[in-house]
Design a binder for these strands. Structure first.
Lengths: 225, 225, 225, 225
DNA sequence: TATGAATGAGGCTTCATTCAT
DNA sequence: AATGAATGAAGCCTCATTCAT
């Protein structure tokens, strides 16, 4: 009742005295700025201009530009890893589970381009900030563990090629899904944008799934004892 | 501090009066700087400090920092595309040719990490500078055309799956080869560096080739009429 | 981060509701900060971080940083002048009293380096804050008055040179005792630290006493009528 | 002829392209600012406003504020030590030479208050910048060496007390001469300004000389064998 | 052609202080 | 009486770029 509903109105300062909301606001705005311009290209003033609070708060809560960047990176990972939890594969036959996983990853990365831009920027910085994070490493085990279980099921069922490595399989799926987004601009500029239309992406998605399936699937030779 | 008067007899002051040599020197040094730090992270002063000539020459020959960056980008593409010409596939059976092509691309990208960093940086900049180049687009057709011919051969020989799209196949091969280098730092930080040791890379290389082959190869069902 | 609820039973929140104790705590902490860093070099945040109470209290009790500085200065003078009261010279022969006074002053200043740093800082500020104090001027008469009496005794006893000026004599004693502490760092850096070891200080102390005595003592020529 | 005579006219930029002149100008202006306000109290913008060149040059030539401060400190020492060379004592009898030296030092420090303010500021900083200087230590030996020679002469002539230590004697002379300037403001505020009028200073000067002489002079007891 | 000197504009960050509860 | 949150003003410094010779 007392608090104004219009959060975007800077003069209605109902969001004040709510540190978590202020920090979230800063991170949200900063993520766009960093994702678009990189660490050195980002401008603190531009971030401040888009925030509900004053520039000073960036330093109050994050210390400096790099501190803010580090937090944005953690936030980006947390959000994307959170989204991955939605996927459940346990009640599907192994090959269908693989197909679903690849399709889901492909879509998930497409839907989070800013996350992938942060990842690219981190690679420019040799993953220095990621390595310093204490929480990001904890988020990463799930994907590979899920694949580990799935491979075990597929091998037990006799539908998977033997000797599959979960980490390398994860690498392959990531390669396709990341490259599709992270390198879209240069690939498009070099070879045309056909692959990046709705139709082109649908075809690519099908093909990527098919490629992984073709690799994972047990070849005929292995079938007979 | 003081420049030696007699670096070696042949080149002593010989690079002066030779604009092309001066430009090449600048570009070579600038490529390292841009590849390591990105466009906004690169420092004109650092480039100048590593050069044989003075900072003023950068502006004399390239106008400004962005002009230099654009030239470096073109140089990077030219060098890598030049290297790709060494590969000849025509005298190999189609499947072996594919295997060789994938392996070569994987290796070639590994051997040119600075080129891939420039590509990532271009993606951060939405490929704006690449798009403005007049020479880069001309260099790119070869790869896809070569695949086109190869696919035709493979289909004619009855060893390739039907309906393969050369552009999408190029995309897949690129995805693996680019991701391997461009995302090595974050992937390594997230999942360990096992895949990036000499042994890990060899296994990955084999697997990548096998994956593409598994996809390209005509499946058993298609064999019988 | 979180303050313990039970620091120790007696003082638990006991200093609250006790404005004088809070002010003393602030002044004590602030004196260290000002003495170490000067007025402009001191940081309100650092003072606050070392206090038992919050930063807001500084402004509540002292108005602003300069107000706090002024109070710290007064406190520093009060403490040192208080210490000087311990010295009684009345029951000693005049020359011995001088020797004791010089030695005491030398020691007293050595034992209160923060006071002397405040004095130096005040000199940097042209003694502006000292001049505005209402209580400091009242504390200073004692030293000169004591010397006045002592000189009278010494002259009456015929052991002192005639025409001694108490203010100038106080100035001489101060010069030695203050310089010894206030300029120890630069003197040591320029000429080595030999004079500032325990042994060096002892020798210096003896010499300083001897110098003042040599000056104060009635020369032989004056002895005979 | 071609160069404008009016160096103060900013629009006549004849001083340009003369790095040494520019650096000297900056140092001269900066010394006033640092001497008046200390290191943290000094404002780069204020220095810039008083200079003939732009603020940017401070960073071009001195790196940062601390770098400039360090250079100013060296300049202050160099200038004062240079001035001390003017004094020659060799053709005077030892006691007269001491009197002249003390009087000269007293005057010299009075005439260079900004130097002494720099020294005080250095003491606030624990002589950190002085210690890092590579040239200041080399300037300091002269004063003590001169005293060493003088003491040797005085002892040989039988007019000096035996066992005089040159370093400690230098310390005494410095104590008086430095204190007189460095602590003038607080001493004046505490005890009145009588000692700092022309007349007061003359009396003080005489007394300081007399005090040192009284100490140095061989006492009567020592005269007879 | 070539260079060391010079710079305006704008970047990041810190500071003492006040606000809202 | 007390506090954590918040801030405007101003500080130091860096950058790509141009000038003067």
């Amino acid at each position: 009742m007392a608090k104004p509903l219009n959060e975007n109105d800077k003069s209605r300062q109902g969001w004040k005295q709510n540190p978590e909301a202020v920090k979230r606001d800063i991170i949200r705005v900063a993520m766009t700025e960093f994702a678009q311009n990189g660490l050195s290209g980002a401008r603190v003033d531009r971030i401040a201009a888009s925030m509900k609070t004053s520039k000073r708060m960036i330093y109050y809560y994050f210390g400096d530009k790099e501190g803010l960047y580090a937090q944005v990176l953690e936030y980006a990972y947390a959000k994307v890893r959170e989204g991955e939890k939605k996927l459940s594969l346990d009640d599907l036959p192994p090959l269908e589970a693989i197909a679903k996983l690849v399709g889901f990853t492909f879509d998930h990365h497409r839907n989070n381009p800013d996350f992938l831009r942060m990842v690219m920027i981190e690679n420019i910085h040799h993953a220095d900030y990621l390595r310093r994070s204490e929480i990001i490493p904890k988020m990463n085990s799930a994907a590979v563990e899920r694949l580990e279980k799935l491979i075990a099921r597929g091998e037990a069922d006799g539908v998977f090629r033997s000797g599959l490595d979960p980490l390398r399989l994860h690498w392959q799926i990531s390669a396709f899904s990341v490259f599709n987004v992270a390198n879209a601009d240069t690939f498009g500029a070099n070879f045309g944008s056909a692959l990046f239309t709705a139709k082109g992406q649908a075809a690519l998605r099908r093909e990527v799934i098919e490629t992984i399936l073709a690799y994972v699937r047990k070849p005929r030779e292995e079938e007979t004892p």
